[in-house]
Design a protein around this nucleic acid. Structure first.
Lengths: 352, 352
DNA sequence: CTGAAAGCGCTTACAG
DNA sequence: CTGAAAGCGCTTACAG
């Protein structure tokens, strides 16, 4: 098996497949193996001269610590698991772009704290035994609220003592981080009022498992009341695609005969469906009807007119998920769970 | 430190923080530790009766194999690393939705083969020492072609012998998977010709580091030649945002004075910029000017009119990346590297 | 078919 | 400040 003719080999024993251990580095640096470990870990007890000698030897041998051995010894993984719950049968490209953005900022936040992220997309058979198999120190769960089986599974894991923080769970009993939905809805509604709209309907649902929809309706209703206006719920039907929910809600609004001059939709995809239906029915947006959505997904920027929306601070969202998880792991407190939001006024609501 | 009053403890020695090892399971099942290991690994040499007894004992003790110990022993990680190269300073929510979709299908493909995926987003300081630290058996790199420093870094890692397969590299010297760009461009161009367009310009670049842009221009030129039509390159300027590149390319087309009746843009974001500019200049799309993009990102579905595009089979893309990486790891061959594409005709090119 | 034993490559008390 | 030694929890020849 030996590759004795290998030109790049340092010594006959260190050919191409050679992988240095801390013992090899120790020999190369003329110190003990334990000193190598301390030196490379940055233990301040090691003298500067020794540290340099070890670092140099490690560099020469291309040495890297075997993380599996280190983890076995310390019991810490330096890794967080992130599970994205999808709908059964859903293509990965149809995952909500909001979820992808959140995944990206979550990985970035973990990385900023020196943690790796073990990511998986799960839709039917769930597996959250990361701590049990010592693959990760904790778990962040994101994704489709509709997949109740998934949320049930992870709630059970949390009850078994796993460290879990989530975004989008319909359940209590899972530690969560969410957008400041009430504030966002108030911002959107006040903005429409400032633009001169008064008969503002809100496309939402009182029965959706999505907590944020109820919170957004609440914020809308508060802002309306504060302005002395009557709130009006335009309910969407469960079980349809979001766009279709928006279309149908607008159809009902129109056929009700009761006039309206603006719509606040509790998510962007519903708003885009509503926008299509409004335009199909000949309403000028925003001249006749103003429209604001919620989530800040990219799709809205390309609609005609571009969709006004409320956007969470994605970076803060990732950071809060990770920090809350660290707090759960450490057994310490963490009071931040509401992600700040801001209004993105675009063409669908701004009347020049 | 002991939590002796713990009510749920099974025995005084197995309280809340207790974590069973294979030795505990062995004792519980009345076999040796090595038999536990074999039984749980599904080694067929173990008798069925023993296997059941061990499985039952493991269940009772809530035992899960410590993957770090297993990995240390076997030297295999069962993990693939996935690095998404971002632009420096780029917010994670602005990562190309195409890249996110690819990330999703890559993770899914790895998972379907029983592999975990260690995901990271890198933009400035790069780290690809996954194999060296025994964190993963190989690496898939995706992302922004523009970040040359990133691609340089990973090319160097590949030259050091790391197993790497990529999507989007401007370099040779990295094993790659790509869309069937020529075929996709031919489909788009033939489609425009079938719709009655003849003076079709292609927004592309001869100097872009993006290999796929050159391939797409080539497919366009072939289809034009085959129909006896003259190709026309509408070059975009480097260094601008994609949308702006599309806008300016259209502005130049118009101001050139030479008539055109359709545009094939080599990516959707350029196409969306072109669409905005066309409409701003009063061109009816598709009545006066037909338009097709490339990539199949979601944004195009919401434009007015919706953008026709060419979409790769994302699931196949993830599968090919993973299978090619496995082949590289195993040292075997793998000839599949071109992802099939299909035309998605939408409102921007279909004349009723 | 099963068991006793070695060893994967680290970190960390313990001793000096 | 450094070294010798134990041990993290597995898998896998080797022996029977």
């Amino acid at each position: 098996m030996g590759d004795d003719l290998d030109i790049v080999s340092l010594t006959p024993a260190r050919g191409r497949g050679f992988r240095a251990t801390s013992f090899d580095v120790a020999e190369e640096a003329g110190v003990s193996q334990s000193t190598v470990s301390r030196a490379l870990a940055g233990d301040p007890v090691v003298s500067e001269a020794t540290r340099l000698r070890v670092a140099e030897a490690a560099r020469r041998l291309n040495y890297q610590v075997d993380r599996n051995a280190a983890r076995l010894r310390t019991g810490k993984t330096g890794t967080l698991a992130v599970v994205v719950i999808c709908r059964p049968g859903q293509d990965r490209k149809d995952v909500n772009p909001f979820t992808f953005a959140l995944l990206g900022s979550t990985c970035a936040a973990a990385s900023a704290r020196g943690f790796e992220t073990l990511v998986s997309f799960q839709s039917e058979s769930f597996n959250g035994l990361y701590q049990e198999q010592r693959k990760a120190d904790g778990l962040i769960v994101l994704g489709s609220t509709e997949n109740l089986a998934g949320w049930d599974y992870f709630r059970e894991r949390a009850q078994s003592g796993d460290h879990i923080v989530c975004w989008g769970s319909p359940h209590d009993g899972l530690d969560w981080v969410r957008s400041d939905n009430r504030e966002g809805a108030r911002l959107a509604t006040r903005h429409l009022i400032e633009q001169g709209f008064t008969r503002i309907a809100c496309i939402s649902s009182e029965t959706s498992p999505q907590r944020q929809f109820a919170e957004r309706y609440q914020g809308y209703a508060e802002a309306m009341a504060q302005a002395g206006l009557a709130p009006r719920l335009a309910p969407f039907e469960e079980g349809l695609a979001r766009e279709e929910q928006g279309q149908r809600a607008v159809a009902h609004l129109v056929s009700s005969g009761k006039p309206f001059d603006a719509v606040f939709a509790v998510c962007d995809q519903i708003a885009l469906g509503a926008l299509g239906e409004l335009r199909a029915r000949g309403f000028a947006v925003p001249a006749q009807v103003g429209l604001v959505g919620f989530d800040g997904i990219r799709d809205g920027a390309y609609s005609t007119p571009p969709l006004s929306t409320v956007e969470p601070d994605f970076q803060a969202a990732g950071t809060m998920l990770v920090d809350r998880l660290f707090a759960a792991i450490a057994g310490s407190d963490c009071d931040k769970r509401r992600v700040p939001v801001s209004l993105l006024p675009r063409g669908s609501s701004v009347r020049k």
